[in-house]
């Protein structure tokens, strides 16, 4: 029982990080209808900048630089490439971001080589005790940051002019533009936010207990895909919940590896995808996604 609670809580904290990255995914999708496969390499870019910069400028400024770099890269992807073929179908746009991901990830992993870069977080490998459960300090912080950011997003979406513009554009871009809402600006903002969220996600995904920034960190963002699909692509709340579910599922299956050994080794990595497939069988548009009317 105690082990279960420990794993569950650990899963929630990991899930919080996924939620952040997934939230970025959904924000971009809602605002511009793009499945952004480049999210992974943007995440890597953020983490890479932080890891390279922290020794010379200090951790706090390094984080700011990393977030900025990721946000700028993200906006550029939209403004330079996506915007040119804005009305192409989802698949085409998704594959375009895949191409960008390959370019960015190749260059970054070339720079990193076989090194493992230290992210330089001041909390290092500290462990905190929360209600009798020992959790890595970085994960607790991640949970806190995620909670603050998700709440901030929710408030901003709900109450600010920007939030209203964003939601209007997401619901009906054409009418939003008839109301004077500048869609390109909304798009740029959404991409910037997604980049920033990816960088923050990258920071925590490469902090302890993870070893550091390696060339393959971008692949970690793949774990958020089941989260996004689970939640339903156009639902920010769904993305957050999906992230938490995926975190818990992967930590639990990894933790109970021995008991689940009949399902094979390394279950933690694949369980989220299995859960995603099962959910899609029952609900083809995820848990909270918008469904279509026709039946054929």
């Amino acid at each position: 029982m105690n082990q279960f609670v420990t794993l569950f809580v650990g899963g929630l904290f990991l899930g919080a990080i996924y939620s952040l990255v997934a939230l970025g995914f959904v924000t971009v999708f809602k605002a511009t209808h793009v499945i952004n496969f480049a999210q992974g390499s943007v995440l890597l870019l953020g983490a890479y900048v932080i890891a390279r910069a922290h020794e010379s400028v200090g951790f706090a400024l390094a984080v700011a630089l990393g977030v900025l770099a990721a946000a700028v890269a993200s906006v550029l992807i939209d403004a330079v490439l996506i915007r040119r073929i804005r009305r192409a179908d989802l698949g085409t746009l998704a594959i375009l971001t895949l191409g960008v991901d390959i370019l960015l990830a190749t260059e970054l992993s070339r720079r990193i080589g076989t090194d493992v870069l230290n992210i330089g977080a001041p909390w290092g490998s500290d462990v905190t005790e929360v209600a009798g459960i020992r959790v890595a300090t970085s994960r607790v912080l991640a949970g806190g940051v995620a909670a603050v950011l998700v709440a901030g997003f929710w408030l901003a979406f709900k109450f600010t002019d920007f939030g209203i513009a964003m939601r209007s554009a997401a619901e009906d871009g054409e009418v939003a533009s008839l109301m004077g809402i500048r869609l390109n600006r909304v798009a740029a903002t959404a991409w910037a936010l997604a980049g920033a969220l990816a960088a923050i996600g990258g920071l925590f995904l490469t902090s302890f207990p993870a070893a550091g920034v390696t060339g393959s960190v971008g692949l970690l963002a793949l774990a958020t895909i089941p989260a996004v699909v689970l939640g339903g692509f156009d639902s920010p709340g769904g993305a957050v919940l999906g992230g938490l579910i995926i975190g818990v599922v992967s930590v639990l299956t990894a933790g109970y590896q021995e008991e689940l050994s009949f399902l094979g080794r390394g279950l933690g990595g694949v369980a989220p995808f299995a859960v995603m497939l099962l959910v899609l069988l029952v609900r083809p548009s995820g848990l909270f996604g918008t469904r279509e009317v026709t039946r054929v």
């Binding site: 002019d161 209203i164 939601r167 209007s168 619901e171 009906d172 009418v175 939003a176 109301m179 809402i181």
Partner: peptide, 13 residues
Amino acid sequence: FANLTVEENLRAG
């Protein structure tokens, strides 16, 4: 905007 409230619709305008 069907998923926005009446108030939010007016704000969008």
